[in-house]
Design a protein around this nucleic acid. Structure first.
Lengths: 141, 141, 141, 141
DNA sequence: TTTT
DNA sequence: TTTT
């Protein structure tokens, strides 16, 4: 039974994307994204709660992230949840949950006092949407 | 800067919900949800990939989950991602990512050879949607 | 400023898809989808409200719809809203809002007393997800 | 069979919200929202396509829209699709499709040369999310 | 570690 | 009718 696994986030990058070129030719960009929530507690005090998400962008989307995204920027990210396991230094099994991005849209304006990454569109140009191209070996059937 | 943290899943319960009544009066129901994805690899072989999600439903939604949801059932879950840390038995910090459900809708029909949970609507009745009522101390401001 | 225009529906087909082969070689499948909502009114009476959506699936997705979808079937549809205008028989401008599907997933089981469309997967096979392949002339920039 | 009818939009207000106080005590705010899409056509020319959506916000959300939203502002809107019919001046049945907003989040910064609506949060304050409170007579069952 |  |  086919299912749906979809995540929609709007938040700010906690750091510049880190790009790695893997053996085998793949490229992946990783960054953290903060989504902020505000509410009042029982005493009426305003509370801010920040959730941090690990974002992974692969292949073409990784290159876009490297070129156009910077720490602090507000973005829309659409993707899916993936939890993978790894062995830590004590050889214990650990789990990490990531969002595999399918689409990234730049929102609002750049933060003050911060330059766009090299190659980013000039202020006069329209901010952009980037979509992951489907891999030939990952088409649904 | 307010953000968005939204998850949309369609999958099948991996087990009956486990309900706990916490000190302080809250109720929480936990269950796992499998979302299946199908694709062909480079050799053209059909691959099935299952992602397991930890779902937490609180308060009124927990009671609904306890009454109406059972292992194997197909559901739509809307909610948000939350990662919390805890100390494991070796006093090491560990992280677990959960989906806090805001809305659960029952889909399709019950799996063969499986009874509905006690109190579930008869087959002739419309399957249902359950929404979390907002907590008075958690309204946005 | 790039935006987001996303629709997520779960409902039942109101009729079999109607497929048209347009001059120029495109194929489009149209069907209606009912999304049901249940609530109680002020008197406590159960109310059912049905919203009807016009779904359009293009190219590869149209062929999938023609092969695999039938009246009554429960599906997940992801797509975007598009309103287009046309002239009615009195030469007045009219508007119609459609959902252009990007992804369709078959849910649950087939309705009783109804055969699957020719070519549909056997009951024992996994229901399927179909995604629109991007058109070369419609990639984001 | 309960369904799902969900819309997620990011766009800019085409005009200030228009607020009406209906007989019976309800308040509704209406505004248009432009979602922009960019792509290249077969000749490689950059095309901008704008979709206009009719947004309706009721009750508490209408008051928030009136206070805090202005023409040009970039917002995230979550809601559902509703098509209603009415009689035009020639007594012909016409249809209009609207998005009934459940949640509105203000994004980015205010457009240059434009004042915030009276009562809007000062620049130093966090932009906000507004959610529709459920009506007692519209709870799911 | 972000943003306001 | 928006935005860049």
């Amino acid at each position: 039974m086919a299912g749906v696994n979809k995540v929609i986030l709007i938040g700010n990058l906690g750091k510049d994307p880190e790009v790695r070129h893997l053996e085998g030719g793949s490229t992946v960009a990783n960054f953290t994204l903060a989504t902020n929530e505000y509410y009042r507690d029982k005493q009426g005090t305003r509370i801010e709660r920040t959730e941090w998400h690990n974002i992974a962008a692969w292949r073409g989307l990784a290159e876009m992230a490297e070129k156009f995204l910077k720490k602090g920027q507000q973005v829309y990210v659409e993707g899916k949840i993936r939890t993978r396991q790894y062995q830590d230094k004590d050889n214990q099994t650990r789990y990490i949950t990531e969002i595999i991005a399918d689409e990234i849209t730049m929102l609002g304006s750049r933060p003050h006092g911060q330059e766009a990454a090299a190659g980013a569109p000039a202020a006069a140009e329209a901010p952009q949407t980037f979509r992951q191209e489907p891999e030939l070996d990952q088409l649904p059937f």
